[in-house]
Simulated assay, not measured.
Amino acid sequence: MNAPASVRDTNAIWLVAEREIGSKLRSKAFMISTGILLLIALAGILIGGFASKNPEATKVAVTSATASVVEALPNVAITEVADRGEAEELLRSDKVEAAVLPGDGPLGYTVIALENAPDSIVMGLAQTPEVEILDPATTNPALRYIIALGFGIVFLMAASTFGGTIAQSVVEEKQTRVVELLLSAIPSRTLLAGKVIGNTVLAMAQILALAAIATVGLIVTGQTEVLATLGSPIIWFAVFFLFGFVLLASLFAAAASMVSRQEDIGATTTPITMLVMAPYFLVIFFNNDPVVLTIMSYVPFSAPVGMPMRLFVGEAQWWEPILSLIILIASCVAAIAIGAKIYENSLLRMGARVKLMEALRG
Rank of each mutant, 00 (worst) to 15 (best):
N2P: 12
P4T: 13
S6F: 13
S6V: 14
R8K: 15
D9W: 11
I13M: 12
V16P: 01
R19P: 00
I21C: 08
K28C: 01
A29P: 00
M31N: 10
I32D: 07
S33K: 09
G35H: 10
I36R: 07
L42M: 15
A43G: 13
G44W: 09
I47D: 01
F50T: 12
K53E: 12
N54E: 12
A57S: 14
K59V: 10
S68N: 11
T79D: 04
E88S: 11
E89Q: 14
D94Y: 13
K95S: 13
E97K: 12
A99S: 10
L101K: 07
T110K: 14
I112V: 15
A113D: 11
S120C: 02
I121Y: 03
V122H: 01
V122K: 01
V122G: 02
M123C: 00
G124M: 06
Q127G: 02
P129G: 11
P129I: 12
L134K: 14
D135F: 13
T139P: 00
N140F: 02
P141A: 11
A148H: 04
G150V: 09
F151I: 04
F151S: 06
F151T: 04
G152C: 04
V154L: 13
L156W: 12
M157C: 02
A159W: 05
T161C: 00
F162M: 08
F162R: 07
T165Q: 10
S169H: 05
V171D: 03
R177A: 08
V179E: 10
L183C: 09
P187T: 09
S188A: 15
R189M: 06
R189A: 00
L192S: 06
K195T: 01
V196G: 07
I197C: 01
L202I: 12
M204C: 09
Q206G: 05
A209E: 06
L210A: 10
A212E: 03
I213T: 15
A214M: 12
V216F: 13
V216W: 03
V226H: 10
I234K: 02
F237A: 11
A238W: 03
F241Y: 15
F243E: 03
F245Q: 08
S250F: 14
S250A: 15
S250D: 06
L251D: 03
A253H: 05
A253L: 07
S257Y: 05
S260T: 11
S260A: 11
R261P: 00
Q262H: 11
E263M: 02
I265K: 06
T270L: 13
T273S: 13
F286M: 08
L293R: 08
L293E: 13
M296E: 07
V299E: 04
P300K: 08
P304C: 11
R310Q: 09
F312L: 09
A316I: 02
W318L: 09
I322D: 01
L323Y: 01
S324E: 02
I327Q: 02
L328N: 03
A330M: 12
A334C: 01
A335M: 09
I336G: 00
K341W: 01
Y343W: 03
K355P: 00
M357T: 14
M357Q: 13
R361T: 06
R361G: 07
